[in-house]
Design a protein around this nucleic acid. Structure first.
Lengths: 142, 142
DNA sequence: CTACTATCTGACGTGTACGTTAGATAGAGG
DNA sequence: CCTCTATCTAACGTACACGTCAGATAGTAG
């Protein structure tokens, strides 16, 4: 069911390149895909692809460096840990712990998004004012 | 009144560096500050600084490359032309022309801002959903 | 005029984020 | 077992956006 993908297909699905995935692994941004003996092909799950898509999206929209992205990746990894442990039946304390840490990371991202939105709102307001002034000129002036 | 600034002070006011200003001039992003004989100091007006601040802000918020920024700079230059010509008394046809072109450039920027805002809205919605799920777990679960 | 600081013009260096190439190997299909 | 393609590692190359340094010059304060 959970198809296993190799790096080429993973890259296509995540709308990125093979090199990028390997590079992210190199710098420790992405975990080394499974335990491989050197030379063996990397394998990815669809969840891995989803995680990567999310990370790339956040990077793009917030303009984060790969260094800054590490917190985001951490959050994504935690999500997966949570899913697995829940199905494997984790203790209530463990669940609590995971949820708390998850909240911290989600809060961090929400914070970044909110800030950027506020700045974009300001920018948009100024642009709209400019546009209105120009339209006024076209209407009743020049 | 309209203080004349040299590159160091201009950089401070625009919250950037001297090198950046010179680099932008090198690649033709910013106009060569006035007509200088080679070796003479560059001079900037407060308007120049405002223009630069705007450009840097748009770059940061929209994640544009310097190449893509050229449209934005063009828009800012046009604003200045407009101001000057208005005070110098431009013909109605000229005013009309300037306003139309200005609208195009403002429209372009508004479009970019709107797109980014939409994407950020989506991102925020997903993050908020995640947060809510985690909070639910803390409330009535773990 | 002198002293001092900021700016000037090259030119080379740097960090980030990958692209590209070479030669060997893995693994799926027949 | 053989073939063929995708992937492997290692290494060098590249585009962008500046940083940094050297040596000369401009402009301001006294």
């Amino acid at each position: 069911m959970t198809a296993v993908l190799r790096i080429g297909e993973a890259a296509r699905r995540a709308e990125t390149t093979v090199r990028t995935i390997r590079y992210y692994e190199e710098i420790g941004l992405l975990p080394a895909a499974g335990t491989r003996e050197s030379g063996a092909h990397r394998v990815y799950s669809e969840q891995d692809v989803e995680r990567l898509r999310w990370v790339l999206r956040v990077k793009e929209l917030l303009g984060l460096s790969l260094e800054e992205l590490k917190e985001v990746v951490e959050g994504e990894e935690l999500r997966e840990v949570r899913r697995e442990e829940y199905h494997g039946g984790a203790s209530p304390e463990r669940r609590h712990e995971l949820a708390v840490e998850g909240l911290r990371l989600v809060g961090y991202q929400l914070d970044l998004v909110a800030r950027r939105q506020a700045e974009l709102d300001d920018l948009r307001a100024e642009l709209t004012a400019r546009r209105d002034r120009l339209e006024a000129i076209l209407r009743d002036g020049a």
